[in-house]
Nucleic acid binder design. Sequence first.
DNA 1: TCTATTGGTTGGAGCGCTCTAATGCTGTAG
DNA 2: CTACAGCATTAGAGCGCTCCAACCAATAGA
Lengths: 370, 370
Amino acid sequence: MVRPTMEDVALRAGVSRALVSLVMRGSPKVSEMRRTAVLKAAEELGYSPHAMARSLASRTSTVLGVMVSDLHNAFFAEVVDGIDEVARDQGFDIIINTGGRSPARERRALESLLSFRPAGLILLSPVVPATAIGKAAEQLPIVLVARSSRVSTVDTVNDDGETGARLAVDHLVSLGHTRIAHLDGGEGTQAGPRRRGYVAAMEAHGLVPQVVSSEYTDAAGARAIRGLIADDALPTAILSCNDFNAVGAISALEDAGLRVPQDVSVVGYDNTSLAALRHVSLTTIDQPRAEFGRLAADALLQRVREERTEPVRHLLNPSLVVRSTTAPPATSRRSSGSLFLSTAGGDSAGSGGRTADFKAKSPERRSRDQ
Amino acid sequence: MVRPTMEDVALRAGVSRALVSLVMRGSPKVSEMRRTAVLKAAEELGYSPHAMARSLASRTSTVLGVMVSDLHNAFFAEVVDGIDEVARDQGFDIIINTGGRSPARERRALESLLSFRPAGLILLSPVVPATAIGKAAEQLPIVLVARSSRVSTVDTVNDDGETGARLAVDHLVSLGHTRIAHLDGGEGTQAGPRRRGYVAAMEAHGLVPQVVSSEYTDAAGARAIRGLIADDALPTAILSCNDFNAVGAISALEDAGLRVPQDVSVVGYDNTSLAALRHVSLTTIDQPRAEFGRLAADALLQRVREERTEPVRHLLNPSLVVRSTTAPPATSRRSSGSLFLSTAGGDSAGSGGRTADFKAKSPERRSRDQ
DNA sequence: TCTATTGGTTGGAGCGCTCTAATGCTGTAG
DNA sequence: CTACAGCATTAGAGCGCTCCAACCAATAGA
């Protein structure tokens, strides 16, 4: 259980510790004779350098810290793949830590990562307050993924959530939908841009937006749908804040005897592996996740090497992936009294105020800026 | 970009470096006055201890390394949750690294983790050769999760795959199924026990096992089903090697116009969050994943504290989770010519040899040991 | 009064390494 | 024969911390 040190190797090879150090770092100014002798001794002893001692002595690090907000979400796994690819290419190692979506735990994870004095940090969709990030940014370069920031020493990599939401709305509108609700991501990172994009796109089409409060989980998606049904406020199409939420929404719709996409169309967001499962086959918005990782690592390493001081703000273009959960609306259904809604219970009369939201605006457009 | 050291804190608080060290480590033999003074100075400077220097000086580490073979699989995320819980409780931090299912990359991840000289290592379903693990085990305590080992210095935590597979078979048999195929996990870790358990359970029931070569992915599950259909060899029930595989199998069945569970029952394995999605609602075998993590961390910390030298081999009991993908077989269907199989193509006569496998054995049991 | 004892505090060595400056040791020019 | 490169090698300081032994009151016991 005790590892040999440089001293041991030096002794065995009959040279100084400094010479062993030079060999280990591949210095060119070592004679071939000594080099092979040292390498041989190291091999025999099973020596491998102590990264921490090295880093301490050299005051540099070849480690990049990665904070993953939620290990359960495959989204991040693909970003990490991209990071790992670039880091490895450039001789850096990564260490990962997770915050489990809890600010307290995330803070601790951050502390822990920081205590290793990595060369830089990549935070994937962090939930800690901006001030905590700003503070850490004083100590080392930081790149944020899937979260924006205005701190000038912090680089960011995001998808253009507004564009993504617009793509989804455009798709649904082109299918003939006019009543499209958005199940909102609430406090979640990137929920804002998606919501704004949805609202803007609806208004651009002269439609009335309907934002329904929800969260980034399948339970929340199901809950939101049950709420809409109870309020007799179900539209013909749903844009969920992410894929999980969409899958929950689909389940709730099916539980209520509605078919997707015949009765209601559903669009997710993220194009997780979940969406691609043939059994799910969810129409969704794809983000170039591995590219996120690569760009983040590149940006970070530029800072590490002090090649750049200007902040970088990557905003990547999302794209629409059409699968099997969207179709033209069954236009006649609503006017003839929807098969389900009318049977949902007679006590929903009081919610008429919300129902009014769904009436498509007439051609007089209401677009704000475009 | 330059972090304060203990020296800086000591200077500011008007005490010695050693005293700061004591405060940082929470020593009880520090007067309240000095303690608050030091804490205040540290706070003002934004000081936090340098983990590497600490570890170097103390020749101990409060870090546990965790190697996750596949970040894309939520199974591991839940194990990590369990590890993290115990580790945190006992004052240890964890750093994670991933091997991406590739032996080469995993080896590098292992090297990287080792270079931090952590107190111990937990490997989640590693794919590196046993010799590599044995070598690492000479340097620090190692616990394997979801992979067995015979090395006496290595602890292991596994589920009892044989029991799990038996639970699934028993469930299907109790529903009335006699023709049950197993989509095999091939080289994957833990595929062996599951296969053995399946075969033993089938034989215990006097049934003929049918092992179909497959893999731990949904594409492989779909492929296997298409193969069975093409061979006119589709049974009334499927036991998949894991949930992903099962979901792929279900998709392929549905694509072929078969209903689950009315026409074919499907059982998964792992009870991932995927299986729990209402839209999927997969009958499956649950493994206590967080418990895996907790036990692994406990075992590791015992070794770290040198409380134990005997190897520990945890074998946890899986349990059956019945959801919506299993039901009694439509017994009459086969004899009257199955609605799908008979129309699949008249050219399948040649595969009769395999079809024979499905005939249920008569009551004369064939059980080996029980 | 003197010696133990105790609780709080400190200097200094050292963890395994890197890095700078200094040391030999050629070989070539002055 | 001295001077001076030029190269390979090494001693030694130091990275930020822990840990041990020593130290220094202040109190207690003889």
